[in-house]
Write a protein that binds this DNA or RNA. Structure first.
Length: 259
DNA sequence: ATGCCACAGCGTCTGTGA
């Protein structure tokens, strides 16, 4: 089962590029971030006509996450637990059942800039809530994954120019430590496990010729519980689509699990 | 030190992103 995560940076602007990618990559599941759409305006038909079931958790203007799946989406829940006041649409969960079941969590972690400041505080608080959910997922001792745009550069080797990011919310010590704490609970960070070493970027800014100069960063991650990691057959980053027409600034990351 | 570029929204500018 091929399961992908992709920050599409706006469904309205990405209808063509997203359809092209689905048709060529043929993921069984795609977790999408930054749909920038309310649920009513999400073009479900585009995906349903390709055989996907669709679950969305959108909001007006920005944020918003969704899951597309060729298998039925069961027990869908929306919103990251731990703060009833939080209205930002950044988290969606569903279960799909292949040979065995897997719990899928799609996430769009807050950017956090400028740091320090209230947005950075929100990011760190959100990561604490993420850690609490992660603890529960591990305790279940079942296949599960948390995939999405983490807005975290884990290590200096995950940026082409790490010196440009030292003060940035994506790379500050507090951010990296919070991410490492979650991984260290017992997850497999799939990309760095399968593709060790520098240069495996998932985001290139639209500005200043970042793609042309390969000035990228690795911020889209897949975390697997041990029971899911045991099923991993393959993993990839579809970086070539960053050079196609009307691209997102992120590219898809996918994992093939024996499910 | 700033803007570079892109997207959505009631929109010819502002907020947001990374």
């Amino acid at each position: 089962m091929k399961i992908a995560t992709f920050n599409i940076n706006g469904i309205k602007a990405r209808v063509g590029a997203l359809a092209d990618w689905l048709d060529s990559a043929q993921p069984d599941v795609a977790m999408l971030q930054e749909i920038k759409s309310v649920d009513e305006n999400f073009p479900r038909e585009l995906f349903e006509e390709r055989g996907y079931n669709v679950a969305t958790h959108g909001q007006k203007g920005f944020n918003g996450v969704a899951i597309l799946s060729k298998l039925p989406l069961e027990d869908v829940t929306r919103g990251l637990p731990g703060d009833d006041e939080d209205e930002q649409a950044r988290w969606i969960e569903a279960t799909v059942v292949g040979k065995t079941a897997i719990r899928l969590c799609g996430l769009y972690l807050p950017n956090g800039n400028p740091a320090p400041g209230p947005k950075f505080d929100y990011k760190l608080a959100w990561m604490e809530r993420l850690q609490a959910r992660a603890v529960d997922l591990l305790a279940a001792e079942e296949p599960a994954m948390m995939a999405g745009d983490y807005n975290v550069i884990p290590q200096p080797q995950d940026a082409a120019s790490p010196e440009d990011w030292t003060e940035d919310a994506l790379f500050r010590p507090d951010t990296r430590a919070a991410f490492q704490r979650i991984v260290n609970l017992g997850f497999t960070e799939a990309v760095s496990t399968r593709l060790p070493g520098p240069g495996h970027y998932t985001f290139w800014d639209y500005q200043a010729g970042a793609w042309r100069r390969n000035n990228g960063i690795r911020i889209d991650h897949i975390l697997l519980t041990p029971q899911a990691a045991d099923l991993m057959r393959d993993l990839g980053i579809d970086k070539e689509i960053r050079g196609y027409d009307k691209p997102s600034d992120h590219v898809p990351v996918w994992v093939d699990l024996d499910l």
